[in-house]
């Protein structure tokens, strides 16, 4: 079976000269729950953003479901991004807008500019948004302003927004780094449920080994932009964890 996502010799250097990725080769199969670990600045976020092309890498190729998306532009790029949901450490909701509107924005990728700006979301889209809010357990907050919610609730809205895209892949960039442990587990449980129920591939950046062991089906580690580990979560020993995070690191 061919991989859903293939990164071939992907390198990226930022304009300020920082070399974030160094010749990454990585195949990810559909349905995997891949966790990426590594220090801040090791290239995790950059790697993730090359997949949905928020970043265009300087070198290498990216294949998504067999199609080369390395340098797609315009409508093709929009369509590519629309098929991939993304959630962020700081949730990145539109704070002044209502919760349900934030979920509806997941549908922007399939809408014309004018109908979106005029707010012409269809009844089906509205129903879907409400049912997704129900799924993540905050349907009662639909009319509230997004910034009035707690961190955990905001991240669940963000998950609903990503699901609104009916994605075949979800990218999660340190989704629980701003949350307390209990809330973190609830957010991770939602991601796991999506992965198991719909077979949606998940790529998730994490810092905590306990969460890695609990949720990942496969783990890769980055150090200074290079892939230094690729294996099962159970293969990560404390020693490995130290090589990735430095000798000061403690098992968490």
């Amino acid at each position: 079976m061919s991989a859903q996502i293939q990164l071939q010799n992907v390198s990226h250097t930022y304009q300020n000269g920082f070399k974030a990725l160094h010749s990454i080769n990585l195949d990810i199969a559909a349905g995997e729950f891949l966790v990426v670990i590594g220090l801040s600045g090791s290239g995790k976020s950059t790697l993730m953003r090359t997949v949905n092309r928020l970043i265009q890498p300087n070198e290498g190729r990216i294949l998504f479901e067999g199609r080369d998306v390395t340098s797609v532009r315009g409508d093709e790029l929009r369509k590519h991004r629309a098929s991939i949901g993304m959630i962020f450490q700081h949730f990145n909701l539109i704070g002044r807008h209502s919760v349900v509107d934030n979920v509806l924005y997941g549908a922007l990728g399939g809408m014309s500019t004018t109908s979106a700006i005029l707010g012409r979301f269809t009844t089906e889209q509205r129903d879907l948004a409400m049912s997704l809010l129900g799924r993540v357990g905050i349907a009662d907050k639909a009319a509230n302003r997004a910034d009035a919610l707690s961190g955990g609730q905001q991240q669940r809205v963000a998950i609903a927004r990503a699901l609104m895209q009916q994605p075949r892949l979800v990218l999660a960039d340190e989704p629980v780094a701003s949350l307390d442990p209990a809330t973190a587990h609830s957010v991770m449980d939602h991601l796991e449920a999506i992965n198991k129920e719909f077979g949606t591939t998940v790529i998730c950046n994490l810092h905590f080994l306990s969460l890695v062991r609990r949720y990942a089906t496969r783990v890769v580690a980055l150090r200074a932009g290079e892939l230094v580990f690729d294996g099962k979560p159970t293969d990560i020993t404390e020693e490995w964890f130290r090589t990735i995070y430095g000798t000061e690191a403690e098992m968490m």
Partner: peptide, 16 residues
């Protein structure tokens, strides 16, 4: 920039 990135990631047009 966060919200900008999030909306871009949904496949929105530039005006959106």
């Amino acid at each position: 920039d966060g919200p900008v990135e999030a909306i871009e990631a949904t496949g929105a047009t530039r005006l959106q």
